[in-house]
Design a protein around this nucleic acid. Structure first.
Ligand SMILES: [Mn+2]
Ligand SMILES: [Mn+2]
Ligand SMILES: [Zn+2]
Ligand SMILES: [Zn+2]
Lengths: 147, 147
DNA sequence: ACATAAATTAGACAAAGTCTATTTTAGGAC
DNA sequence: GTCCTAAAATAGACTTTGTCTAATTTATGT
């Protein structure tokens, strides 16, 4: 319940396992048991999870997915545009299930990460870049601490 | 020789060892042999170095500074405003000897990092943040790859 | 020169992530 | 359903980056 992000919750996250399978197939990803399990964790809502958190969540009941597979799968999901990697914490990568354009607020004291809706940030000037450069992303990160 | 940064090279980096000692004292840092050696490497010019690079540079001739001291010293320098930590690469922190306001261009394919002068980026709108939040930094990172 | 707090050190340790060799599975052909 | 094969998953060794601890050394005020 961020003060900053007032984004419509009309997302297109999969509602059923079948939806998720379709989502993976549409992205060109073979839907294995492990990938489905990981997808169920990640695509349940907009969130920022580390690989360790995904590993823990996925193996909560009993061991279902190995560490290597979690890392591989997060990489595959990111390559295919289902996840966004967020680099803000020096000690770990966050995987963001919100792949629409938005920015981030990072609490450096606690390590919390929040979304900032795209319309709440405007970058009105960018440098002229050599034409052989492709922009992948323009990240704005507001680093804050409480009081 | 960045295409983007056309910053006046009229910097205030220390020119002599004595200058550097003054610089450290002014920052409230006891100037030890190790800190001076590390400072000579870092404050020779505007650059982005990882801890490993600093460690290697400082021990090029013979072993002078331990790994623990390099990490400690980079932390101390950053705390006292002589260095800026730049988090853009998921595998390591960059220490930036340019502490004036500026932004970054990151080549995700090669891991290179370049400065973008402040006047070449304008963030014209920021979200309203709760008043108990202190902004430490607003980072703009343009992630690019070649062709 | 002495005292002492601050700084440095070696090396053990930890956390995050990668890699390899082997096994298992998805899914197309029949 | 069975067979086949490329793709995926796995255990666990390994690597990299960074932290911690307990012992030693140094900076600096008196
Ligand atoms: Mn790290
Ligand atoms: Mn890392
Ligand atoms: Zn996000
Ligand atoms: Zn910089």
């Amino acid at each position: 319940m961020s003060i900053i992000l007032t984004m419509s919750e009309l997302e297109k996250f999969p509602k059923t396992r079948a939806d998720l399978v379709v989502m993976l197939r549409n992205a060109g990803i073979t839907p294995t048991h492990q990938r489905i399990k990981i997808g169920e964790v990640l695509f349940s809502r907009e969130q920022h999870l580390s690989a360790e958190q995904v590993l823990a969540a996925v193996n909560q009941e009993d061991d279902e997915v190995s560490k290597a597979t979690v890392y591989n799968t997060l990489g595959v999901f990111a390559e295919h545009g289902l996840l966004r990697e967020v680099i803000v914490d020096p000690s770990k990568v966050f995987y963001d299930s919100n792949v629409s354009k938005h920015h981030h607020l990072f609490y450096s004291d606690t390590g919390e990460l929040e979304d900032i809706a795209d319309e709440n940030i405007e970058v009105s000037k960018l440098p002229n870049l050599p034409s052989d450069l492709q922009i992948e992303e323009v990240d704005v990160i507001i680093r804050v601490h409480r009081n």
